[in-house]
Computed example of a mutant assay.
Amino acid sequence: MPPDMGAARAGLLVDDEITAIDGKPAKGMSGDDLHQALSGQVGTRVRLQIVREGMTKEVVVERGPLVAPPPPPAR
């Protein structure tokens, strides 16, 4: 996860499991549902409930601008 992204700044780790977004269970959400729940105006915040190493934790992420992933390395 790029260190300058909101999720990294909020302390999220690669293996964290998101179980709720703003109090709504993430289980069963489609990709579009997840995108809509996480999208929002830059600077607004979203509350995520996560499970890390068997422990439940709440994290607040400040939304930033969407950035395209880097292209794969040339072969």
Score class of each variant (00 low, 15 high):
residue 1 M to D: 02
residue 1 M to H: 09
residue 2 P to I: 11
residue 3 P to W: 10
residue 3 P to K: 13
residue 3 P to S: 14
residue 4 D to F: 09
residue 4 D to C: 04
residue 5 M to G: 14
residue 6 G to D: 15
residue 12 L to D: 11
residue 12 L to H: 12
residue 13 L to F: 01
residue 14 V to C: 11
residue 16 D to L: 12
residue 17 E to D: 13
residue 17 E to W: 13
residue 18 I to N: 10
residue 18 I to D: 12
residue 19 T to P: 00
residue 19 T to L: 00
residue 19 T to M: 00
residue 21 I to T: 13
residue 22 D to C: 11
residue 22 D to S: 12
residue 23 G to W: 07
residue 23 G to F: 08
residue 23 G to H: 05
residue 26 A to L: 00
residue 26 A to S: 00
residue 27 K to C: 07
residue 28 G to R: 07
residue 28 G to K: 07
residue 28 G to I: 08
residue 28 G to T: 07
residue 30 S to D: 03
residue 30 S to N: 02
residue 30 S to R: 06
residue 31 G to M: 01
residue 32 D to G: 06
residue 32 D to V: 07
residue 33 D to C: 09
residue 35 H to P: 00
residue 36 Q to K: 15
residue 36 Q to D: 12
residue 37 A to C: 00
residue 37 A to G: 01
residue 37 A to I: 00
residue 37 A to V: 01
residue 38 L to H: 01
residue 39 S to Q: 12
residue 39 S to M: 09
residue 39 S to C: 10
residue 40 G to V: 02
residue 41 Q to E: 07
residue 44 T to E: 09
residue 44 T to R: 08
residue 44 T to Y: 03
residue 44 T to H: 05
residue 44 T to I: 01
residue 45 R to D: 08
residue 46 V to L: 14
residue 46 V to F: 14
residue 48 L to R: 05
residue 48 L to V: 12
residue 51 V to E: 15
residue 52 R to N: 00
residue 53 E to Y: 06
residue 54 G to C: 03
residue 55 M to E: 15
residue 55 M to L: 14
residue 57 K to N: 09
residue 57 K to Q: 08
residue 58 E to D: 10
residue 58 E to W: 06
residue 58 E to R: 07
residue 61 V to F: 14
residue 62 E to C: 03
residue 62 E to D: 02
residue 62 E to S: 07
residue 62 E to R: 04
residue 62 E to P: 04
residue 64 G to L: 06
residue 64 G to K: 02
residue 65 P to N: 04
residue 65 P to I: 03
residue 68 A to P: 11
residue 68 A to M: 08
residue 69 P to L: 13
residue 69 P to D: 09
residue 70 P to R: 05
residue 71 P to W: 09
residue 72 P to H: 10
residue 73 P to T: 01
residue 73 P to W: 01
residue 73 P to R: 02
residue 75 R to L: 13
